[in-house]
Simulated scan of single mutants.
Amino acid sequence: MMRVADFVENCLAYEQYAFSWDELKVKIPKTDVALRHELGRLSKKKEILALRQGFYLILPPRYKGFGKLPLEFYVEELFKFLDKPYYIAFFSAAAFHGASHQQVQQSYLMTKIPNLRDIKKGNIYLSISATSKWPNKNIQQRKSDAGIFNISSPALTAIDLIHYQSKMGGLNRILAILEELAESMTPEDIQELLQWYPHTSSIQRLGFLFQELQSDRVLLDPLEKYFIGKNYFPVLLCPDKDKKPGRVDNMWKVVRNIELESDL
Rank of each mutant, 00 (worst) to 15 (best):
F96P: 00
E183P: 00
K30I: 08
R62I: 14
F90H: 00
G207W: 04
F208Y: 15
K45F: 09
N231I: 14
Y226I: 10
R247I: 15
K120F: 12
Y63D: 08
E179P: 03
L206K: 07
L220A: 12
Q53P: 01
M2E: 15
T131R: 01
S166F: 13
N136P: 00
L78V: 14
H163I: 15
L51C: 03
W134A: 08
T31D: 06
A18C: 11
A155K: 01
R205H: 12
Q105T: 15
A130F: 13
M251W: 12
G98V: 13
D221F: 05
L193P: 02
I88H: 02
I139V: 14
F233H: 11
Q102V: 15
Q103C: 06
W196P: 00
G246P: 09
L156Q: 03
I177Y: 00
S43N: 11
Q103W: 11
S202G: 12
M1S: 09
T157K: 01
Q191V: 10
S215G: 04
G67E: 09
E183H: 08
A13F: 12
L126R: 06
W134Y: 07
S129G: 14
W21M: 07
L82E: 07
P234F: 04
F96V: 14
V254I: 12
V235G: 04
I190G: 02
T131Q: 04
R62S: 12
K27S: 11
D242F: 11
